[in-house]
Nucleic acid binder design. Structure first.
Lengths: 340, 340
DNA sequence: TTTAGCACTCAAAAAGCGAGAGTGCTAACA
DNA sequence: TGTTAGCACTCTCGCTTTTTGAGTGCTAAA
């Protein structure tokens, strides 16, 4: 269904006004804001049409209009003019990243913090991971006479430690070092599947180690096993739409366990550019009253993470999008520099 | 100020009733519950006395009484009879831990989840760390021709990875391995201070590595740098006292950044047994409307973490305390088994 | 097709009004 | 002297009623 130019202008005004005022928008106000001189009655007619098309709703008969999720989507996709972060803000963000060490974890925390402060809502950042994991290096350390610490490094830089129970009598540190160095030779560059098959012909400590390694690599491939940094949760709770507690609870719940969240982040990993999910895009019921602005970052295939900003539907999309885009570009640079 | 036996009985009843009913408690109700036959008028007199002593308050003139933070404290410290988790519940918890792998991280997540589900509120778990960190092992991996991945393992099992920029021309993997093995010999068992001094007489890559190692070990000693697992945040928001949004916001904020939180957790690390902080204990303004039940766990000095349950003042202390105590004992066993 | 005009609707705010829970006080009582 | 019955008093809560005003939808004229 095509909208007329005037309808588009009205929709845009309603969305913008509602975003900044946070209360239903009447025909009078829009009539004033419209560039072409138009009466409120005309605006009313058009608004009624937009309501039939489901771009707007009524909280009740005698209230102004409020955009629907569909309305926001139309606005974001076709009506909104792209904006960009002010150079000063960009510089400030750059500066903060330059202050930090060469430490991915610090960068991620920083990215979450910057996103949430700049966009004034909650932010999520997931660690950059390869789409498929490959073995890089293994270290076996004798912790006690019954425990061995396995430290596994994957090609994308993921590090995972885990204990395994040592057989009795326990192998010495030297024996372990020898075993590790043997395995490192054999496993270099292999994927989870290949290690699994190797496992079947091993035994003793070696089999235990291979089992742990293969299991972890499988896990990380499938469930995502994503390490997520959050920030600014309290900011989003300040928004008027989350003042009524059931909504706030649902929101926190989504953020906390979030199978939906996981799926959305997953999808974003394989998409390009800035993704926008408004009101769960009719796919995720538990995200009906939030919007997400997401972007992948990193080096394709080698190490991809996701940045996300999460706010109410009534979100300053322009600013949020440009913030996400910019932080993603900064992170791109950092990660690229690592994985060249 | 000493309370009479009857005053104590009344205070106890008020606290218990308020915890279960979540509404101000009148003299009539208490008079009925009291073992010795007492008139409501007498209860009223005593309540007025308890109010003068600041164990109770009034929301308004014609409402029942509500315990103050001081009242809760008195109740918890002197009036409450210790309870214990039902054997069936203990078994269920045990069972869940036995299901898990030999993986500290999994245990911590599980502990947070168990705590929050059993006590029906939010829970926090920090990783077990030594009070002072000692070097155990180091690994240097060449990631690209300009980056080196440093993997550092401390005696308490902490693993930390970080990149450093490689000098040009970049050392080969063999050179790095040789350097690492040399360092491992020299640094084994040293503390942050000793490594710092060694650093001054090193140069090149070695100095860079030592710098990163020393810095990280210092950091972990001081700022705590605690890795925290949370769970059940949405549960606490369901409590009636957090229905009004400003409180909810403050709560989330405390949980999120929480310098107060950090201090409380820190204090709990060095204390013994179950700690209880009610309404911030007059020290932490931002925790005025929450109570914390904390316990350290692990092996003293070698690896100590903290378990905490966080709820409204009107919290089922008995159950929360026994849950925390029990989960701490389970975690004690697990960690002890590791660090023997 | 647009617009002025107007009746109509409905939420939200203000006002009024018991009802009732619970108190504090006083005076009698054991 | 401590306890209790009795009672006036106070305020919140829940309910209904009124008022207000923003904003609509419709109609009829331009």
């Amino acid at each position: 269904m095509e909208l007329s130019a005037r309808q588009e202008a009205i929709l845009a005004q309603v969305v913008q006004s509602y975003i900044s005022l946070a209360m239903p928008i009447g025909s009078e106000l829009i009539a004033q804001k419209l560039p072409a001189k138009t009466s409120s009655a005309t605006v009313r007619n058009e608004m009624a049409a937009l309501e039939d098309l489901e771009y707007l709703t009524h909280p009740h008969t005698s209230a102004g209009r409020v955009p629907t999720a569909k309305g926001y989507r139309y606005f974001v996709e076709r009506l909104m003019e792209q904006s960009d972060l002010a150079p000063a803000e960009k510089r400030m963000i750059q500066h903060q990243f330059h202050q930090a060490n060469l430490d991915l974890e610090q960068w991620m925390k920083l990215a979450a913090s910057v996103l949430s402060r700049t966009a004034q809502t909650a932010a999520l950042v997931t660690a950059p991971r390869a789409s498929q994991s490959f073995f890089k290096h293994l270290q076996l350390l004798s912790i006690s006479d019954s425990l061995i610490l396995v430290v596994l490094v994957l090609r994308d830089g993921t590090v995972k430690q885990q204990m395994i129970a040592a057989p009795q009598p326990a192998p010495s540190q030297e024996e372990l070092a020898a075993l590790a160095s043997g395995l490192n030779g054999k496993l270099e560059g292999l994927d989870a599947q290949q290690i699994s098959t190797l496992m079947t012909i091993a035994n003793g400590v070696e089999a235990q180690v291979l089992d742990r390694v293969a299991t972890f690599m499988h896990e990380i491939n499938h469930t995502g096993n994503l390490e997520v940094f959050r920030d600014g949760l309290s900011l989003i709770l300040q928004q008027p739409e989350f003042k009524e507690s059931p909504r706030a609870e649902r929101l926190v719940h989504v953020l906390e366990v979030g199978t939906s969240m996981g799926r959305v982040l997953d999808e974003a990993t394989s998409a390009n550019g800035v993704q926008i999910v408004i009101g769960g895009d009719d796919k995720f019921n538990d995200m009906q009253d939030v919007s997400l602005i997401l972007s992948r970052y990193g080096v394709a295939d080698e190490a991809t993470g996701v940045l996300a900003v999460l706010g109410p539907l009534r979100m300053p999309y322009g600013r949020a999008i440009s913030t996400v885009r910019y932080v993603a570009s900064v992170m791109d640079g950092l990660v690229e520099w690592i994985y060249k």
